[in-house]
């Protein structure tokens, strides 16, 4: 604990607490407001008269008889088939996480255990790859994928996301495996295990904390991606984020912005749950990269 904390003079304490409160409000309020508003009709959430309508739900009561309505959710999930894009998202994110962790643990382990010079260059190369904007890579994929006739399918998008994810996964797991003592797998090899057996029997059982943390970030990348999924998936294979983007164009003209609001809230909910349960891992993952990198 910092020493400064104990003897903070009152004005400074008030100022710093006030600042933290203000920040928490700024960080949380947009989400609370949108979740609340998603249960109103459009004339309330986007009120021309006063935003107080969104709190009381004046028009919502007038239109539906109750202060809350699930119309937006019904419209998005049932009428506009948001449901199928949710299923697609589950398929894509789960596959991306599983495959990129498999590739990443193998690669990260190798990088952490090899003492040769080229590991350094591979890590540097990964850093450069990590910096490539995703959309520039997408512009490289499109034409070849059209020609090979593999555009629009989920496996294509999955393997692309896995590849884009690799640099980060490699860096994270590399630094994690460095923290597992070398002696552990070397003594297993002295006892007669092959390199792969040592990895499977000795390293895998102790690697889960690092793998879970890395997996969270792989999940976030796959879940939050827009550039790749929007450009590489055909309409029926779309995941949630491009689906929301496609809502915007069509829905705004029909006056059903609330569909999009409901879809946005639906897409944010899993992230809330994720942060709720894995806050510690996310924080440690963010800092692990920083402290070691």
């Amino acid at each position: 604990m910092m020493v400064t904390k104990r003897r903070q003079p009152l004005p400074l304490a008030v100022l710093s607490t006030g600042f933290v409160l203000l920040w928490v409000f700024m960080a949380a309020f947009p989400f609370i407001w949108t979740v609340w508003g998603s249960f109103k009709v459009e004339q309330d959430f986007f009120s021309r008269d006063s935003w107080w309508f969104a709190i009381e739900g004046t028009r919502t009561i007038a239109r539906t008889g109750s202060a809350f309505t699930g119309d937006g959710y019904y419209g998005a999930w049932v009428l506009r088939d948001f449901f199928s894009s949710v299923i697609n998202t589950v398929i894509v994110t789960v596959s991306v996480v599983v495959v990129s962790l498999t590739f990443g643990t193998l690669g990260g382990y190798a990088l952490a255990r090899s003492g040769y010079r080229y590991t350094f260059w591979l890590l540097m190369l990964a850093l450069v790859f990590r910096a490539m904007p995703h959309i520039t890579l997408v512009s490289g994929y499109l034409l070849p994928f059209f020609e090979m006739n593999i555009w629009g399918y989920m496996p294509t998008a999955i393997i692309v996301l896995v590849a884009i994810n690799q640099p980060f996964t490699l860096w994270m797991l590399h630094s994690f495996f460095l923290s597992i003592p070398k002696d552990l797998d070397e003594s297993a090899m002295v006892d007669g295990c092959s390199r792969f057996q040592a990895f499977r029997l000795v390293v895998i059982p102790v690697m889960w904390p690092g793998v879970i943390t890395t997996g969270l970030f792989s999940f976030l990348l796959a879940y939050n991606d827009f550039a790749v999924t929007a450009m590489l998936l055909s309409q029926p294979n779309q995941t949630m984020v491009p689906k929301i983007a496609s809502f915007l164009g069509t829905v705004q003209q029909e006056g059903n912005v609330m569909f999009a609001v409901a879809a946005v809230v639906s897409a944010t909910a899993p992230l809330f749950v994720l942060v709720l349960f894995f806050q510690r891992q996310i924080v440690s993952g963010l800092t692990a990269g920083a402290v070691k990198g």
């Binding site: 690669g107 512009s139 590849a163």
Partner: peptide
Amino acid sequence: AFIMPSLAAMLLFIALPIVSV
């Protein structure tokens, strides 16, 4: 052997697209 899958994925889908671009 260990790094092959990862390296192949990166070369095929990051390095090659840059060439393609």
